[in-house]
Amino acid sequence: MDTVINTITDFVKSLDAELRVFDMGRRLYRLSNKQFQTFENFETPYPTPLQRHAWLGILIWWKETKEEPLIWFLKLPLDEQGIIIPASRDDFIQRLMKAIQNRVHNPETRDQSILSESELAFTPNQERMAAFHAKISHFLNKNASSFYEPAISYLKKEQEVDSWDTIGLQGLADVCARLEDMNHEEVIKSSLKWLPETPKMLVLTLLENEIPSTDLSLTILDLARQELAQSTPNPTLLAAYLRAMSGSKAATPRQELIIEMLANDQVNNNLELISAIASRCWKDLENESLCFQLFECIAQMDSGEYIFIQFYSDLVAIPGVRPWLMAVIRSTERSEALSKCIGVLFNGIK
């Protein structure tokens, strides 16, 4: 009897291959195979949708062979409840089934051309792509890229500080993906205090895909507070600090920092900073007070009604955040500006 293939998980099993799935949307983090399977089977909503899609990095590999792994980047459309919309995915599955048939007649073929023909395919930005390749290389026990050694040498201050333009992005990604290896956290912690702005921003951007220790997170927190205390704080740098510690388990210090940022009139109307909170720190919004404070700040911004609708529509699809957003909508303590935004939202729905 032919194998019935209804899902990507089924397809991988038909290849006698292994599967690892990463979210590529809000942050780069691993989804368990069980999470992904229940999502594919319409049993659970996608945990971290972005713009009504599940943005996925999919690694398929074979333990017993030296074949190159398959890597797919797919964005699967979701409904209002975060459940997968089957039509596009099923079309993709049909293409996969044809690929299997092709493999029967051409056993050496590992055809990835179906991606170029699919509307589900996307290309991550450079930083996310570098982080992804660093993660899977580390996971598959492969050596880091040739850019790793120069990068770690630079971060250890073994080179001239202004020689950063010779350091490859992939090398920095390799260092960040190996935080627990060879004292890398201590190296990064020290380097953040002297790095020029451009390489510092790159390191912070790459750290958002990792789980920094509490110690490293507190270092980043101190740097963020120093910046926030400036007469004219840099909201771009503040947003980068916040994204860098967004994956940390040090939730309380991070939430305290967010509250301080939202209370600071010099930066709390900055769209980049607000976006960093909404897109990277969604777990922190599972908190009525913080969620309310964020949307009060959004309501006070220029074009606040439009920005409110964009962020509300995106965040309400996240199962853990939805109840707290509903509490914001129902609050009797909201400002006139927030009430106006909510009115515009519901008039649009009608």
Score class of each variant (00 low, 15 high):
39 F>D: 06
89 R>V: 03
183 N>A: 01
121 A>F: 13
331 S>M: 08
49 P>M: 11
135 K>S: 07
232 T>L: 13
265 D>N: 09
167 I>A: 08
208 E>T: 05
35 Q>E: 09
22 F>A: 15
221 L>H: 15
140 L>E: 07
308 F>D: 00
218 L>Y: 13
78 L>D: 01
174 D>C: 04
319 P>W: 06
14 S>L: 09
210 E>N: 10
19 L>D: 02
160 E>D: 13
87 A>Q: 10
115 L>A: 07
144 A>F: 07
55 W>M: 03
67 E>T: 15
212 P>I: 00
193 K>N: 10
182 M>K: 15
193 K>C: 03
173 A>W: 11
78 L>S: 03
50 L>S: 08
178 R>H: 08
138 H>A: 05
93 I>K: 06
7 T>F: 15
126 Q>D: 10
220 I>F: 06
143 N>S: 12
119 E>R: 05
25 G>K: 07
256 E>A: 09
131 A>W: 00
155 L>D: 10
265 D>T: 08
125 N>Y: 11
157 K>R: 12
139 F>S: 03
244 A>M: 10
25 G>E: 12
195 L>K: 00
61 W>K: 11
281 C>D: 13
270 N>A: 12
219 T>M: 01
303 S>K: 14
347 N>I: 08
139 F>L: 03
333 E>R: 09
254 R>Y: 10
73 F>V: 10
94 Q>C: 01
109 T>A: 14
277 I>W: 04
326 M>H: 14
197 E>V: 11
336 E>N: 14
76 L>R: 04
88 S>Q: 05
76 L>H: 09
268 N>K: 12
167 I>P: 03
84 I>G: 03
122 F>S: 04
245 M>P: 10
157 K>E: 13
214 T>G: 15
162 D>N: 13
75 K>T: 13
213 S>A: 10
143 N>Y: 02
219 T>A: 02
167 I>S: 14
79 D>F: 13
86 P>E: 04
334 R>S: 11
51 Q>L: 11
174 D>S: 12
282 W>R: 08
28 L>T: 06
68 E>S: 14
138 H>S: 05
244 A>T: 13
253 P>M: 03
170 Q>R: 09
140 L>W: 03
126 Q>R: 12
349 I>G: 03
42 F>K: 06
27 R>M: 07
181 D>K: 11
311 F>N: 09
43 E>Y: 04
196 P>E: 00
314 D>R: 04
185 E>P: 02
343 G>Y: 01
211 I>G: 09
294 L>R: 05
54 A>S: 07
193 K>W: 07
251 A>T: 07
348 G>H: 09
200 K>C: 10
297 C>Q: 03
251 A>F: 14
104 V>Q: 14
67 E>F: 15
283 K>E: 13
291 C>D: 05
158 E>L: 01
69 P>Q: 14
321 V>Y: 06
180 E>V: 14
23 D>M: 08
293 Q>G: 06
330 R>G: 01
300 Q>T: 11
184 H>G: 00
102 N>W: 06
317 A>W: 09
132 F>D: 00
213 S>I: 01
11 F>Y: 14
242 L>D: 00
120 L>Y: 11
46 Y>G: 02
136 I>C: 08
114 I>K: 01
228 L>Q: 05
325 L>K: 00
325 L>F: 02
